[in-house]
Each structure stands twice: as C-alpha cells, then as structure tokens.
C-alpha cells in the first residue's frame, strides 16, 4: 500500500527525464545515419563524423569556443570570488543588500538585453568585435554566477574562524589564504564549472558581440541550421554532449576528492603546511 505513491513518483520522474533527454538522443541517433536527412534511418555510418572532423572551420570554432570558455571562467572565478568576499565583508546591511541585488539583477536580466548593451558599449568605445569582446562579455555574465556560488559558502563559515586565525597571529593575507579560501573552495570550484557551462552554451550574448571571422559553436550551429540541416551538426552535438558529460564527471570527482582529502589524505599534507 505504501509503495503506491512511491511507484507513481518513480514513473513521473522517468517520464520527465525521457521527455528531456529524448530530443538529444534523437539528434545523436541520427548522427550515425548513412543518409543525409533525419526522416529515415538508412543504416549505420560514421561519415558525418568524418565530415565534421574534415571541416577545419568547424574545428577551429570548437577550439575557440573552449578557449573562450576556459579563459572567461578562470577570470570570472577570480573576480567573482573577490566580489563575493567584498560583499561578505560589507558590514553595512543596506549596502550589502544593494550589492547583492545588483548582482542578482545581472543574473536574471535577459541575455538579449545584456548582449545588445554590450554591443552598444563596445562600439561606443570603439573596440573591434571578435575574440576580445566575446571573452569580456562572457567574463561579465559569469561573474554573478560565481558570486552566487561562493557567497553562501562564505556565509556558512563560522566568523569566529577569522577571529581565531588573527588571534593566532595571521595577517589579513594569511587569514584569506589559509582559512577563508580553503573553506570556500568547494563553492569556488562549483562557480568555475558553472561559468564554463554558461560560457559554452551561451548564444544570445555571443551572437551580438562576435564580429566578422570570429564565432563560437552555438552561433555557428545556429547560422548553419538556418541554411538547412546538415547531419555533421548532429555529430557535433553528440560530441558536445559527451564533453559536457565528461565535465560533469570531472566536477563530481574533484568535489568528491576535496571532501575526501580533508578526511584522509591530510595526514601527509600536514608536513606540507608547516613547510611553507
């Protein structure tokens, strides 16, 4: 009797997941099609993958996309972490709420508006559109995400830890490097990975600020899809799906490792800290 509601919730969950993953798997399935269209499976073939890898322009864009993602998320993590520290250290409550709200507004404002405003901004200051403008805009929309990931972790921290570190003789820098940053590390890591995924799949903002000759995957796929469906796009989607899966797995292992290392491996690390 008790099982019944549980069973229904199970069925519901499976249904929702099927609904969400079906289009992706449909796309991946047809990437292995021998034929050129998605309206009939003519047999298994890897020729679309061959096409894709032979397309140097596409490969170049793929590399560009990852460079933009990594560069922008590293910088955004750096800036966002210090931003979170700034908000955390703001004593005045109204100022603190104001800063936090300004941060959240950036999070919720539509990408189109953000993209358009960046376009206006970059043209106004006379900056040429391309790699630089894309990286800058990606950094800008990733910072609020990082702040939002790091700040709760800082708020969770017992403020007496900072007093304790100072009490034991730590300077401001040492308090930060030895106590606060190690404590906030899981949040920083989560922010970094979130920033990567946001940068990888951003279309709207990038669409506005890419100039001639520079493009990222999402923009490129969009422009190609408009000209008619090419199954090498399907192959690319399959590849991207695998990569994002890999990203999730890497994140899982890193976050698990940092929990474990503070449980077991620290015995060995003790000497290291003293050594510094």
């Amino acid at each position: 009797m008790d099982n019944k509601p549980k069973k229904w919730s199970y069925i519901y969950l499976v249904f929702v997941f099927i609904l969400m993953y079906a289009p992706i798997f449909y796309l991946i399935f047809y990437s292995f099609n021998k034929g050129d269209y998605m309206n009939g499976f003519d047999g298994f073939s890897l020729r679309h993958y061959q096409d894709m890898f032979a397309d140097t322009r596409l490969m170049e864009i793929l590399v560009n996309t990852f460079i933009v993602a990594l560069l922008s998320s590293v910088l955004a993590t750096l800036i966002g972490t210090f931003g979170a520290l700034g908000i955390y250290n703001t004593k005045h409550r109204t100022t603190k709420n104001l800063l936090l709200s300004l941060n959240n507004v950036l999070m919720v404002s539509p990408d189109v508006i953000v993209g358009a405003s960046f376009l206006i901004f970059f043209t106004m200051i006379g900056m040429s559109l391309g790699f630089g403008s894309v990286v800058l805009s990606h950094i800008a929309f990733s910072i609020p995400i990082v702040v939002l990931m790091v700040l709760p972790r800082l708020n969770e921290m017992n403020p007496a830890l900072i007093d304790a570190a100072r009490d034991l003789g730590a300077s401001n820098y040492q308090v930060l490097s030895r106590v606060v940053l190690p404590y906030a590390w899981p949040g920083i890591l989560a922010g970094f990975f979130m920033a990567i995924t946001y940068s990888l799949d951003d279309f709207a903002v990038t669409f506005f600020v890419t100039g001639n000759g520079f493009s990222t995957l999402s923009v490129e796929i969009y422009s190609r899809a408009r000209q008619g469906i090419d199954l090498s796009i399907n192959a690319l989607s399959a590849l991207m799906f695998l990569l994002s899966l890999l990203l999730v797995i890497v994140y899982y292992f890193i976050s698990n490792y940092s929990v474990k290392s503070s449980k077991k491996k620290r015995g060995g690390a003790a000497g290291m800290v003293v050594h510094q």
Partner: peptide, 25 residues
Amino acid sequence: NTVFQNYALFPNMNVFENVAFGMSI
C-alpha cells in the same frame, strides 16, 4: 590568545595543523 566559545577550529585542517597554525604563521 583566545579559546572560543564554539571552539572555532579550522575544519579544513587536522588536529596537528590546527595546533601548529600559530607557529607555522
């Protein structure tokens, strides 16, 4: 030096590192 009400031990360090903190600084 202070002993805090809720101990305020550094959770990312083990016992040795906690006690050694002041000296390593």
